[in-house]
Design a protein around this nucleic acid. Structure first.
Lengths: 191, 191
DNA sequence: TTATTTTTATTGAACGGTCAATTAATAAAA
DNA sequence: TTTTATTAATTGACCGTTCAATAAAAATAA
């Protein structure tokens, strides 16, 4: 029963944070959405804090799993870079309104040591995923700069799309810009 | 007395949000920092919400004023673009830890109509500031793309620096990357 | 000038509401 | 029966707001 309930509560948390924001998300708003009582959260996660952390961890592993799935049957470095962009933007469609949830969590990570650790993992993972592919296309020094710039461009386009409450079409357009930017980096630095 | 008190309370709010986060910032934490009683906030701002909004408005106008001051005695389009980057990164040094305050506010803007309006103003202002200078250096269509990409790159580098709790040197390095990126755009698209 | 009233600025206690967490009770399963 | 899963009521802390009381300043009258 435990793994089922845990998953249900995590998904209820995602819904609640997307809808109300992390600030207004309470033990009650979550348990109500999950159709359970409020006490169950302390029982399975030790408290609200534990559930929030588990939810972020779940988002993180979803992102990672999504990329691994796309690249499962091998692909070129260029192709893999495009997959990385897609994975980072895809969190949108996967679960409706998950985007603003990420933003809530990251903002909160400034004042929460545990969340900050998870944020660090996420930021570094994007960078090293990019670096791995760039290194197959250019010299190491240039690959590092390309990876840093690409990571910033992806996050920046994503952030601006989220904050302006962009629709699906605008998200696709941002995703396209990110891809074209990476291709221009390859053209510029590639051997 | 009113304008003095308002300013004092806004600055106490900035401190509190930087220190505790918007989530944990209360009427008490603010009024304590300002050395006043809690009732004064409702008296001058109608309530907590009003003070928060006034604080964001203050940050926004600070950013704008900073750019106007830098470009007061005229400069080349390239120079102006560099000033835009500097203004957007300078909010850091101006007031210690104001960066995470911005992040808190923007995250909250997803669930607050008034803040979202202010966020929109801010995003559009950066874009049109950039567009104005790019248009003097390249064709309109390319200028628009350059402005959109630059805005995303600035915000992305800034976001990653804030989230990773970068020190001053790392912020400077991010600022440099942004400037070099804009110069590469000019080289790529410039007439 | 001094005495008085009026206005302005500020306080802090009280209120109603909500929060996360706990706990005793209950229901179901083993 | 014992264990496991879940509920619902309760607790104590803290939230933002309100408001009667007060202190200080300014205006007016003597």
């Amino acid at each position: 029963m435990e793994p089922v309930r845990r998953q249900q509560l995590i998904e209820a948390t995602l819904q609640s944070v997307a809808e109300l924001g992390l600030q207004a998300t309470t033990i009650n708003s979550i348990s109500k959405k999950a159709g359970m009582s409020s006490g169950i959260i302390s029982h399975y996660f030790g408290g609200k804090q534990g559930l929030i952390e588990a939810t972020v961890r779940y988002l993180l592993s979803s992102l990672q799993r999504s990329l691994l799935h796309k690249t499962a049957q091998g692909c070129s470095p260029e192709q893999r870079l495009m997959f990385i962009v897609e994975a980072n933007f895809a969190v949108v469609q996967q679960q409706r309104d998950t985007t603003r949830t990420w933003l809530s969590f990251w903002a909160h990570s400034m004042h929460d040591a545990q969340l900050h650790r998870l944020q660090r993992v996420n930021a570094r993972r994007l960078y090293s995923n990019l670096l791995y592919s760039f290194k197959q296309l250019m010299a190491p020094g240039e690959a590092r700069e390309a990876a840093e710039l690409s990571a910033a461009m992806i996050d920046g386009l994503w952030l601006r799309a989220v904050l302006s409450k962009a629709d699906d079409a605008q998200f696709d357009s941002a995703q396209d810009l990110a891809k074209r930017y990476i291709q221009s980096l390859i053209q510029q630095f590639g051997v």
